[in-house]
């Protein structure tokens, strides 16, 4: 894979690091019908997203199908410093996964 499915940015301001991530993913609910074939489009959604920095799990989340397509998530934490590596992982219900690393700016 040449391009990551994740875009991430972590910026520090007044001691608080804001992490913003955008994941490119269809987030299919399994309820939609393919109009051409009349068959339901199988569910494909991200179930787990974890964000780690300095060997510490900052965010550990479980998602259902009701998270919007191409999910966006943002959170804030204190105690980060410029140059810290922040990693984000996702896993979907078809066991597909991806991860990315970024530096805190």
């Amino acid at each position: 894979m040449t391009r990551s499915s994740i875009k991430i940015r972590a910026q520090i301001n007044n001691g608080i690091t804001t992490v913003k991530a955008l994941i490119s993913h269809p987030m299919e609910t399994g309820l939609r019908i393919d109009r051409k074939t009349g068959q339901p489009i199988p569910a494909k959604f991200i179930s787990n997203v974890t964000c780690v920095s300095n060997k510490k799990v900052l965010l550990n989340s479980q998602w259902g199908v009701a998270v919007a397509k191409n999910p966006y998530v943002s959170f804030k934490y204190s105690g980060g410093s410029i140059g810290d590596i922040i990693k984000l992982f996702w896993l979907d219900n078809t066991n597909q996964s991806d991860s990315i690393e970024a530096k805190v700016k």
Binding site: Q62, V65, A66, Y72, S74, F75, K76
Partner: peptide
């Protein structure tokens, strides 16, 4: 929603009580 639970976020103690995302309704 058909299934009301959207998402659960577990935050570390260093995290602010803050989450921003986009959901389907």
């Amino acid at each position: 929603n058909n299934a009301p639970l959207v998402a659960q976020f577990e935050l570390d103690k260093d995290c602010n009580a803050y989450i921003s995302t986009r959901i389907k309704m």
